[in-house]
Design a protein around this nucleic acid. Structure first.
Lengths: 146, 146
DNA sequence: ATACTTGTAACCATAACAATTACATTGTCT
DNA sequence: AGACAATGTAATTGTTATGGTTACAAGTAT
């Protein structure tokens, strides 16, 4: 299984809002860049808004970032779009047999390990900000321009 | 989304094979500890066998570990049961708009970052061996005994 | 031969996902 | 006020992974 593309789309949206900040970022416009339906964008935007990453208002066209670019890490986006619940990256079979030494302990033994592994991944995401993403994209564009 | 419990079940199975190594570990027996169907166990066992972690033979009851406990990391189990493909922990929306600076670069920008995050998680799993799991369970059992 | 076990394949119910449609709500503009 | 446009949200759909279940062929031992 794999983590929902809502995460990648969230990054895409926020990046585009920044790069197109002089324009009007309607859900329709953003959707055309992501290549999906505008309702999908609005749904994700709602999550980003709840997380305080973005300002959008009903009836008013366009979205703006609510924070500075360098203040938003990928981990913030990841949490915002709710792709993985806390301590639930790995699922554990439930109701193992309590009459077996392994069955009655496996969950408690394995959970903290899974938790460490999940945290390691999340830590890596928190080391990257949207500013890094935007810079990288601008770099790539510049390279092509030559 | 969350990573299939095949992983946790794989750990459970291997641990139990070790702890019950004086007994006969049939799929039926293992299934009763995991609390699932024996066919599910056999399917997972097939994966563990393909990965060279376990010895099982058609018609012959019982499974044995194919390696030393301390030589099997959780990452080995994780790879064996195929819960996450390489570089595919995170999914990325496909066909973003190539006419948009963000659309045409987002994949190349984001992929290496996702890859680093996934590796960090996998690294954490490779730091733990089945010997650690078995020890922890035996510790927990001993504590209860007092 | 009989009994037991592993190895597979087929099938099913469930859940998450992304896309889509539809519509109420909110705001802007004339 | 009324028309228009955008957001917010709910309902529906096709697709896919999962975990469980049944069934049975193939291998092994007594």
């Amino acid at each position: 299984m794999s983590i929902s593309s809502r995460f990648a789309v969230g990054i895409h949206i926020l990046t585009l809002i920044e790069i197109n900040k002089s324009g009007v970022n309607t859900s329709e416009y953003l959707a055309s860049s992501v290549n999906t339906n505008a309702a999908v964008i609005r749904k994700i935007m709602g999550m980003l808004k709840s997380a305080g990453l973005v300002n959008v208002r009903p009836g008013i066209a366009g979205a703006q970032l609510a924070k500075d670019l360098s203040e938003i890490t990928l981990f913030d986006v990841y949490k915002a779009v709710n792709v993985v619940q806390e301590k639930e990256l790995f699922s554990i079979h439930d109701h193992p047999n309590p009459d077996c030494p392994v069955g009655r302990n496996i969950q408690d033994t394995v959970m903290p390990i899974f938790s460490v592994a999940q945290s390691a991944m999340e830590k890596a995401l928190s080391n990257v900000t949207l500013a890094d993403i935007v810079n990288d994209i601008l770099e790539k564009e510049k390279a092509v321009g030559k």
